[in-house]
Each structure stands twice: as C-alpha cells, then as structure tokens.
Design a protein around this nucleic acid. Sequence first.
DNA 1: CTACTATATGCTTATATATGCATATAGTAG
DNA 2: CTACTATATGCATATATAAGCATATAGTAG
Lengths: 103, 103
Amino acid sequence: MSYQLHQTQSDFFKALAHPTRLQILEFLKPGERCVCEIFPALAMEQSNVSRHLAVLKKEGLLQSRKDGLKVIYRISDPRINEIVELSAKITRQIWHDKAIGIC
Amino acid sequence: MSYQLHQTQSDFFKALAHPTRLQILEFLKPGERCVCEIFPALAMEQSNVSRHLAVLKKEGLLQSRKDGLKVIYRISDPRINEIVELSAKITRQIWHDKAIGIC
DNA sequence: CTACTATATGCTTATATATGCATATAGTAG
DNA sequence: CTACTATATGCATATATAAGCATATAGTAG
C-alpha cells in the first residue's frame, strides 16, 4: 500500500480520534442536522463544535448544505457508521480484557 | 453511549491515526514479528518504532511476548484488520470523490 | 439601509504528539 | 565476571491539536 494512501488513511482516523467528533457522528446517525441542533445537544461552545465539524468535513466524513442561514451536516457514507460501531465493539472488549487483566 | 466509552474509543482511533502505525499493522497482518524484523522493514529508527509499538500495545491493538532477547508483537484482535481494511476502502472512495470534485 | 441570526475564523494559550540521539535495561554467550 | 544484542526510555525540540473569547461573514427580516 502506498505511503500516500497510508497518510490519507491516518488523516481519516485522526478525524475519528476525538470524543466530541464521535459524539457528533453518533448524533448525526439518524439523519442530517443543522449546527444549531448539534452544539446544544452536545452542550458545547458553538465555535468549538463548528471547528470539529470542519475537521470531519475536511476529511470527507461529513457533507453539508445550506438552508437559509442554517448549515446542515450529514454523514457522507454509511460505512463510516459501520467503522464506528465495529470500533465500539472492539473497544468494549479491550476495556473488558484490561479490566480482568488478560493483557 | 457514555463519555468514558467515547474517550476510550477515541484513544483507539488515535492509535490508528499515524502512517507508521498503519504500516506496522499491515506488516503484522500475516502473523507475529519481532521488533528486529519490524523496524528494518519500515526503514525507520528502532527507538521510533519501539514507541509506536508501545502506543499500539497500550491501546490494546497489539500484544507481545518475549522470546529470549526478542520481543514479538502480534495483532490482538482480527477485527482490527477489518477496521483497517474498511477504512482503506472508504479512504480510497473519499480520495476519488475529492479528485473529481463531488464534495 | 439597519438590526438580527447562524455559522465560521483569527488569535492566544495550553496540552499532546513525534522524532532523534544517547543511554538504560534485560537477556545471552563466553 | 565481561562483552554483546535486542528493546525500551529519558531528554530536548519541533510540530500539531484543542479550547475559549472576540469578531468576521453570510443570509434574513423590516
């Protein structure tokens, strides 16, 4: 696999590597939402959430459209949900394994 | 989903979010390898690779065992390969979409 | 035009991460 | 014991990321 692809792939994972961005993806799972719905749901600063949305969009995980003043974001590929769900399963397992000292 | 789990999950993605660590996972896909095989294969400093291995191990993606002087690492869960492969597919798609200007 | 609303961005500061070099540690061999 | 090999770690430095606050921008309403 090329270095270029590994770089792009690691940027993709970097976008997923923040609790707030995982919260955003979870919140958007049922469907598209505007920023005005997202940041109150996460109880975070509007500017902070806006930057996290920009990261997710820049790496291609989200797409957006304008509706009047509002900007509405959606998950760009359903496989992103698959990855998040699969990682949650593994994470739970790792967590459990660590707790009982297998590792 | 709990904040604690989102935190652990983002640490998991953080471990995946580096080209060198993706190279390591790809190199270990066929089976376990000692550090002495890994760092020459990646053409990187031994100390640098050692730290990346430590990150992957700390987050539960790798496990290790000693064999004399050597330390042998292996991927701890086959689903980790699934995630890497799925992300490669999505990444290729994103890359392609960006190239033809869909986003 | 002005006033307002929704979102994005500039600036600063704090914190985290990656790397190289040198060195420490653990195990082997003689 | 000493010499050697494989791996890990301390330290210094460079770079990246995150957050808050203030402000800019884009669109709406009157």
